[in-house]
Every structure is written in structure tokens, then in C-alpha cells.
């Protein structure tokens, strides 16, 4: 059965000011200069899996198509290899813009439940903030627990190999001054950085 969907975009599909807002974040300003050449997509090792190419994400962001951008799988597939930023003929920091978009997607909660990438980001930050350090084996276990714990059974071989070679640990690595870190992080809970005033209440750049 062929599914018929509306593909045209109306002006009401745009969230006016979204592009400006992203471009006002330090590091994202150069997006204004994009000439839509597609170099970013051409060098991106993950672009073969993306629903919107990196170039399209740039165009959609600039044109205020907020929902389309934030629900795109592209922003999650970015592995932060910076190939696009290095090759961009307009010096656009595409990787940083992807981070910015990921942050906004997490704030708005627009990603599939149990989608592993934002879950990993969240678990990672929780562990880093709480213990001060990351214990990779424990992080992976938490990730599997929160996403698809059945997958854990498929990992036994890897786990065993790491255990044998002394690379697997169940003891939490931790810093001594955990209280210091907590105080530092708490001090930036309500901080908003951006050249433009927040247009809506949900603009707060906190993690929760």
C-alpha cells in the first residue's frame, strides 16, 4: 500500500526565529555563510545513513524548520569526526552546530524512546557529574539496561575478552573531591548563554 503524505511545507510549518537563535550561539554564527555546496555531506562518513544530509540540516535550520531538524536522525548520527568542519569552504563549524541541535532535541524530548544515542549522552553526563569519572564497562551496562537489555547477551564474547585482558572493571572510578565538582556544576544550573534573549521559557540551557 502506498502511503500518501503531505510533503509541501507551509509557512506555518516554520518556527520563526529558530535559525537566528541557533546562529546566535557562540561557534554557530558562520551558518549564515552557507552556500549549500554539499561538501559536508560529501566528506561525512555517516551521511550514507542519514535521512537529511548535513547540508539539508544546515538549510532547514537556517530556514526555521525546527521540527524537521530536531526529529532528524542526522544529528544523532554525527560521530564528531569534524571532517565537515575541516573541509567546509565557508569555515562553518558544522560539528558544533550538530551539538547545538542535539542539545535542543534533548531539551524538547523529540527523539524515540530508548533511542540509544541520547540515552548514552544522558547516562554519560550523569555518571561524569556524579562520580567525576567514567567507568566504561559500567556505562555500557547502564546503556544496555536503559535501551535494549537483551542486547547484553549478544555482548558476552566481547565482555569475556575484555575481562580476560584486564580491561573490564565493575568498580566505580571516582574522584576524591566529588563535592567540589557538584558545587561547580550546580553553579551553572540556571545559566543561559546566547546573544539573543530567550524567546520562550524552554530556552533554558540546563540538562534536565
Amino acid at each position: 500500500m502506498i502511503e500518501i503524505k503531505r510533503t509541501i511545507k507551509y509557512e506555518t510549518d516554520r518556527v520563526k526565529g529558530f535559525g537566528r537563535e541557533v546562529m546566535s550561539v557562540p561557534g554557530c554564527e558562520q551558518l549564515e555563510q552557507c552556500i549549500q555546496c554539499g561538501t559536508c555531506s560529501g566528506v561525512c562518513p555517516l551521511s550514507i545513513y542519514m535521512d537529511h544530509s548535513p547540508r539539508q540540516v544546515m538549510a532547514l535550520t537556517r530556514s526555521d524548520f525546527k521540527r524537521e531538524v530536531l526529529s532528524s536522525v542526522t544529528i544523532w548520527l554525527c560521530a564528531s569526526c569534524y571532517a565537515c568542519a575541516a573541509e567546509c569552504p565557508r569555515h562553518i563549524r558544522i560539528t558544533d552546530i550538530m551539538y547545538e541541535l542535539k542539545q535542543r532535541a534533548i531539551q524538547e524530548g523529540v527523539y524515540p524512546r530508548r533511542f540509544p544515542i541520547p540515552v548514552l549522552a544522558r547516562e554519560f553526563t550523569r555518571m561524569a557529574q556524579h562520580w567525576g569519572r567514567i567507568t566504561e564497562s559500567l556505562l555500557v551496562l547502564r546503556l544496555l539496561w536503559r535501551t535494549n537489555w537483551l542486547e547484553a547477551f549478544g555482548m558476552w564474547r566481547l565482555g569475556l575478552g575484555l575481562w580476560r585482558t584486564g580491561r573490564f572493571s565493575l568498580r566505580h572510578e571516582s574522584i576524591r573531591q566529588r563535592a567540589d565538582l557538584t558545587r561547580m556544576m550546580a553553579s551553572v544550573d540556571d545559566v543561559v548563554i546566547g546573544a539573543l534573549p530567550p524567546p520562550a521559557a524552554n530556552h533554558r540551557r540546563g540538562a534536565r
Binding site: S80, E100, I106, L120, T125, G132, R133, I134, L181, I193
Partner: peptide
């Protein structure tokens, strides 16, 4: 302490 790696950048750049 942990540098925050790429994961933290995706959650909150300031933090």
C-alpha cells in the same frame, strides 16, 4: 575528573 568527552557537548556546552 572526566573531560566530558563528546557526549557532554551534546547535552550542555556550558556545563
Amino acid at each position: 575528573n572526566c573531560c566530558g568527552a563528546t557526549a557532554y557537548m551534546a547535552v550542555d556546552e556550558v556545563k
